[in-house]
Design a protein around this nucleic acid. Structure first.
Length: 124
DNA sequence: CTGATGACTATAG
DNA sequence: CCTATAGCCATCA
């Protein structure tokens, strides 16, 4: 056994990441690191960025609510992907000021109830 | 196996 | 604000 994780485990982690992303409500945002923590992957911020890019076409996951820890979009400012994400955020009332979101105002923070209930339901 | 890469983060100067 | 450095970890050539 020694090698890294198997396909089953990788898939479980991906599902937890996507579940955490789906928990972020409209009008709120979360950082990659925050999603990783919620998914049970304390140092998995980079993996959070990978999961959405692996999604099959047409899947409905609110990946646009995920930002870097500084409140910026992870794409180069002005790029097509950046504009697409910005437009989705804008539609929910999350505005960029000077290229970044006011995390103090828009950051999503799950309730204690949610932390106690959601995981068991979402992780299985 | 090794090294490079990336939708990351934190700290230091 | 910037750059540099280090840590992170799955994935790929």
């Amino acid at each position: 056994m020694g090698r890294g994780i198997g396909n089953a485990e990788r898939e479980r982690r991906r599902r937890r990441i996507l579940a955490a992303v789906c928990d972020v409500p409209p009008g709120k945002v979360a950082s990659y690191g925050q999603i990783a923590e919620l998914a049970g992957l304390p140092r998995g911020a980079r993996q959070v960025g990978r999961a959405p890019s692996d999604l099959p076409r047409g899947t409905d996951v609110p990946w646009h609510r995920i930002l870097t820890a500084s409140g910026r979009l992870a794409f180069p400012e002005g790029s097509a992907a950046w504009r697409r994400q910005r437009r989705r955020l804008d539609a929910e009332g999350v505005l960029l000021v000077d290229g970044r979101v006011d995390l103090a105002a828009c950051r999503w923070q799950p309730d204690l109830d949610e932390l106690l209930w959601k995981p068991s339901a979402a992780w299985d």
